[in-house]
Write a protein that binds this DNA or RNA. Sequence first.
DNA 1: CTGAAAGCGCTAACAA
DNA 2: TTGTTAGCGCTTTCAG
Lengths: 346, 346
Amino acid sequence: MVPVTIRDVARASGVHVSTVSRTFSAPHLVNPETRDRVLASAEELGYRPNRAARALITGRTHNLGLIVADIANPFFPPLIKAAESQARLRDYHVFIADTNEDPVVEAEVVQALAKQVDGILLCSPRMSNDLIEQSRRVVPLVVVNRMVDSIPSVVMDVGQGARRAMEHLVELGHRQIALLAGPRGSWTNREIRRAAAATARGAGANLQVIGPNQPNQTAGSAAAEQVRRAGVTAVLCYNDLLAFGLLDGLERLGVAVPTELSVVGIDDTLARFARPRLTTVATPAAAAGRAAVDMLLQHDDDRRTTAQVTLQTELVVRASTGPAPHRPAGPTGATAGYAVAGHLKE
Amino acid sequence: MVPVTIRDVARASGVHVSTVSRTFSAPHLVNPETRDRVLASAEELGYRPNRAARALITGRTHNLGLIVADIANPFFPPLIKAAESQARLRDYHVFIADTNEDPVVEAEVVQALAKQVDGILLCSPRMSNDLIEQSRRVVPLVVVNRMVDSIPSVVMDVGQGARRAMEHLVELGHRQIALLAGPRGSWTNREIRRAAAATARGAGANLQVIGPNQPNQTAGSAAAEQVRRAGVTAVLCYNDLLAFGLLDGLERLGVAVPTELSVVGIDDTLARFARPRLTTVATPAAAAGRAAVDMLLQHDDDRRTTAQVTLQTELVVRASTGPAPHRPAGPTGATAGYAVAGHLKE
DNA sequence: CTGAAAGCGCTAACAA
DNA sequence: TTGTTAGCGCTTTCAG
C-alpha cells in the first residue's frame, strides 16, 4: 500500500533513477554488478515497476481487452480462460467486459478500453461491420467469430459444421428440418443459416427457420411448442444452450428425442451434459482464444497484417439424433396425444 | 489510433489544458459556456481522457482485479459477469485472471495486478490466510468464498447448506453417507466438511470423506468406483461439477440414481442440466460478485471497515435423492452384478 | 556504463 | 472562473 517507486530503489542502491529504469527495461545496458545491486534493493523494498507510468511514455500498456457477448454463455469461459492464460504467458494482463449481447454497449466498451490496452479481442460481436471498422481506427482489433474485410479475425468454420450436421440428418432420412436460429447481429448465425439452407436445397430437404432467438436456454425451451407445430422431424440449433432448452421443452411436451424428433446442437459446450447426449458440432473455442491473442500481439510488432484464421469444426454424433420417424412430431402427427404430458411436474 | 490529448482539445477550444481537465474531472468549476465549447471540441476530436495518466496523479486507477481459481468452472461465470457489470456501472474496468487452482500463481497475480488496480476481488482463494493478509498490505482486497480475520469478505453460508442437505438425506433414511470432498486450500470445502460431519454425528449417521478432489467433472467420474465400494447409500458432493461427473461414472457402473444411491450437489450451476436433475444447494454467486464489488468500492472511500457479509444458501430438492435402499450400492450389495454394465458404450 | 534533463497525459495547488 | 506551475513514475535521448 506504501508505493515504492523507482526513486526509492535508486536511493537505496546509490545510483541514478535512469540506471534503475535500465535495469528493468534494458538490463543488457547496465553493468552486471550495478544491476545486481539494484535488483537486490528492488527485491528488498518490494519494488514493482508501475506499468501505467511506463505506458505513458512507451505507448505500450501491456494490457489487452477481451469483449464478449455473455460471460455466462458456456461458449465463452473456455475462450476467456485460454486467452487470458496465453496473454499472461506473454506478460499481458487482460480486461474483461460483458456486453450482454448489446451492440451499443459493445461499441462503448471498445472506446472506453481503447486507451488502456494495446489491443482488443472482440468476440462474437453484435455490432455492424461498419462500426467494427471504425473501432479499428481507435485501437488494434482482432475479431473472433466474424469475418470482416480488412480486419484480422479468427473464425471457426461453422458453415462446414452446419453442413456436416445437415448431411448427417439427411442420411438419417430427415427431409423436414428446422433451424432454431441465433441472435440478429451474429455472423455465426448467418453462416449456419446459409450453409444449412444450401445443404438442404442440395439434398431435396426443406429447411424452416425459427427465430431469431436469444442464445440461451429459456429461448430454446420456449421454442419447443413452435418446433413441434412446425411439422419437422429434426432441428439444428444455433448453439448447445438453445438445444438444451429445446430438449427441456420437448420433454415437457412429451416429445421423445430422438425417436420422434432429432436435435443437433452447435459448440459442444453442454452436449455431454444433456440427456440424451447431444449430437453437436464441436467448435475449438480455446484454440480460437489463443490464436486471437497471438495475432493481436504479433500484429502489434509487424503491423499491416490482416490475417484471417479459420479453425476447423467437427460433427460429434451422440444420442440425440436418429432415423427420421414416418410422421413428424407435430400436433397432427402420431404424438399429438402427448400434449397432456406438458402438465407433468418437474 | 492517433491519440488525441488534452492539449489538442485545449488548442481547438482556445483554453488552457487545465480548463479542459476541469471540464472532465470537476465540471462544476468551469463556466457553462466554456464547458460546452470544450465538450464540443472534445466530441469532435474524439477525445477521451487517458485514465492511466490520470491515475498517475490521483492515485486511483478506476480498475479492479478479479482473480478466480478457474474460469471454466461454471460457478465463476455468473460471479464474473455480475461483478464486471456492477463495476462498469460504477465506471470501473476489471482485469480478469485465472489461477488454475494454483496458490502460487494466485499470489503472483495479486502482486502483478496491484499497481494497476484500486482493489482486488480474490475469489475462492487457494493460498494461505497468511499470504492473503500479506497481500492485503499491498492492495485493498475483498475475499469471496473465504473468511479471513481482519479481511473484508463475502461468503455464502455453505455450512448451513451442507447441514440442510445432510438433514434431507437423513430424513430419507440414509445413515451411511459419503462426502466427495473438494480441493485442498478451499475454505468452502472445510466448511462443508465440518457442517456435514457435525450433522451426521448429531443424527447418528456415519460420514465417510472421499478426497480431496480437484473440483471438476473428471475427478467426479473417477471417484464413482470408490464411492460404490464405500458402502454408502448417499453422497454429498463439494460442487455440481463433481456431482455431475459422479453421476456419469455411476451410470457407467450401472448404479441407479436415486434408487440405489442418492447424490447431492452444491452450487446449483449444472444441476438443472443433469439427469436425473440434481438435488443441490443453491449458492448466490451473482449476488456475491455484486456485493464484493460494492464492498471494495465503498471500502475505498471510508477505509478501516472489515465487513464480513454472509449470503444465504438454499437446498433445492430435485430428482437425484430418494429414500435409502435397504442395502448400499456396493460390490457386496444388491447391485454388485451391474459392474459389467461398465462396458456399455456411451 | 552512468547521469542529467526532458517529457508522456494529466491533475492540483496557487495566483491572477 | 481561468491560467501558471509543478510533478505523478517512468523512459529516453544526450552527454560525459
